[in-house]
């Protein structure tokens, strides 16, 4: 994994031109405009709403655009208890999100089933979806969700986006240069 670096940019020397890696620019764009899919299933959703409201203001991190259509979302925030009755619906919504996409498991229930060692509750959404960030708490405070979001941003900024998502294009460019 390449390390994330902040761009060293001096406008007096470089004018309006910035040199950077393509991945770095792409990741910078992606991580500062994460549109969440608010998968609110229980009390964690209340904290999710608080995070979006004025006191905590998730807009400071570019993730204020909660979309209720999965086709416009980048990150699914699974906030709450995933019952078996809901589990396949959550998976289906995730599958309708366009790539690239990420998942935050917010709170104990979404991460592990939490206090519900029960016939009715899925023991962690990671049994169905690839989870990027787990947030502890029951429910987590809005600060914890923001910290989780920042962790996800760090993770995105380290991704090899172009190589991972356009391997055929990378191959073509490689052949053309060879």
């Amino acid at each position: 994994m390449p390390e994330s670096r902040t761009a060293a940019y001096d406008s007096k020397i470089e004018g309006n031109v910035i040199f950077t890696r393509f991945d770095a620019a792409l990741n910078w764009v992606r991580k500062n405009s994460l549109w969440p899919m608010p998968m609110g299933l229980a009390c964690c959703a209340i904290e999710l709403m608080a995070t979006a409201a004025s006191r905590f203001d998730i807009a400071r991190f570019g993730a204020e655009v909660m979309r209720f259509s999965p086709r416009q979302c980048d990150v699914m925030i699974v906030a709450g208890t995933v019952t078996y009755k809901m589990a396949l619906a959550v998976k289906r919504i995730y599958e309708q999100m366009p790539e690239p996409k990420w998942v935050i498991a917010m709170g104990a229930c979404a991460s592990t089933g939490g206090m519900y060692r029960s016939y009715a509750v899925l023991q962690g959404i990671d049994q169905l979806l690839p989870v990027d960030v787990y947030i502890s708490g029951c429910p987590p405070r809005p600060e914890a969700l923001l910290a989780g979001l920042m962790k996800l941003q760090e993770k995105i900024s380290r991704e090899r986006s172009f190589l991972n998502q356009k391997p055929e294009l990378v191959k073509k460019v490689g052949e053309a240069l060879a």
Binding site: Y84, K85, L88, G113, R117, S118, Y119, A120, L122, Q123
Partner: peptide, 26 residues
Amino acid sequence: EFPLEGLPSEMPDVAFTKSAPLEGGP
């Protein structure tokens, strides 16, 4: 007679269940 941790079941495209790990509980 139904165990606390549940029993596995499967209904394709509707829902499934598994036994929950009780970790020494209840």
